[in-house]
Design a protein around this nucleic acid. Structure first.
Length: 288
DNA sequence: AACGATCCCTGTTGGC
DNA sequence: TGCCAACAGGGATCGT
């Protein structure tokens, strides 16, 4: 300790691979630990609770039995049938530190364990949040409305086609819609579309089965490769995993952040535009 | 219902 | 060089 389990460097942009990397590193450090105290320096982190006191009240004295992940949601199963949910938002990082470690700026939540360690949630842009929910609250939450997990339960071509049938929104927007498929964010959506040679603007319901098959395969490839690399670190400084590896999928990005640069396949200039309120980058020649 | 637009928030970046 | 507006992101919410 301290050991960084954020999995995502200075600019994490946590999508499914980064959250899963975080979960795997966190698991051995928190399972079987009992929470002895909770500090909440940033009230906003509790905004998903009607009563902000619910989280500390429910966490304190409770033992963590397992970790899990659905889409971009990190879950910790607690004794007493409660679920501790953490969403990293766009800048959230989790670290296990000694309880007396120096304070970290932008810490929004910290849970101390009985063994002297503590789980620290650091989130400068405060899009992240955390909650401890009963089964009923989970059932009424966004968790219950998530589409199939892009890594653990990817849809088959027929299932995917059914979900997209009749939809006129651009495929890029629907890849970001967590109720359609859970786990993709802007980086991996752009990367998967490029590999599948599909324009991000194409109306989702007008994509052939064959291309949807290619898209699902591309999603699997991109997520597997990112996971194997330990996620994407957009800052090449610092952040090493405990075993010394960096999250280095960034070096394999083919379109994300490369607008105006040449396509690695055909050398056409990559185009950037806003689609569904998000920046999309794609190759106008390879992707139609 | 589906879909686009707007807002939340702050560190970083790019233009002047 | 320094300042500041624009930008980035996931998701909730609102209007059409």
């Amino acid at each position: 300790m301290p050991s960084n389990v954020g999995g995502c460097g200075k600019d994490p942009m946590p999508e499914l691979p980064e959250v899963e990397t975080t979960r795997r590193l966190l698991d051995p450090l928190v399972v079987a630990r009992t929470v002895t105290g909770v500090e909440v320096p940033g009230r906003r982190v509790l905004r998903r609770h009607e009563r902000p006191t619910d989280l500390p009240d429910r966490l304190e004295g409770r033992r963590i039995e397992r970790t899990d992940r659905v889409g971009k949601f990190l879950l910790m199963g607690l004794e007493g049938d409660l679920t501790w949910v953490i969403h990293l938002g766009m800048s959230g990082r989790l670290t296990v530190v000694a309880h007396d470690a120096p304070e970290t700026p932008h810490t929004t939540l910290e849970a101390a364990f009985e063994d002297g360690s503590a789980l620290r949630f650091v989130d400068p842009r405060t899009f992240g949040w955390s909650a401890v929910w009963t089964p009923q609250e989970v059932a009424a939450s966004p968790l219950a409305r998530l589409g199939p997990d892009a890594l653990e339960a990817p849809p088959d071509v027929e299932g995917f086609a059914r979900r997209l049938e009749g939809r006129r929104a651009p495929i890029k927007s629907l890849l970001l819609d967590q109720t359609v498929i859970a786990g993709l964010g802007n980086i991996y959506a752009d990367e998967a579309l490029h590999r599948a040679r599909i324009s991000p603007r194409r109306p989702a319901g007008r994509i052939s089965r064959r291309r949807l098959g290619l898209l699902l395969a591309a999603i699997e490839d991109v997520l597997d490769a990112a996971l194997a690399a330990g996620g994407t670190s957009l800052d090449d400084m610092a952040y090493l995993l405990p075993d010394g590896r960096a999250g280095d999928y960034m070096t394999e990005l083919r379109v994300y952040g490369r607008g105006g640069e040449p396509c690695l396949g055909c050398h056409q200039t990559l185009r950037s535009a806003t689609i569904g309120g998000r920046t999309a980058t794609w190759c106008p020649r390879c992707q139609r």
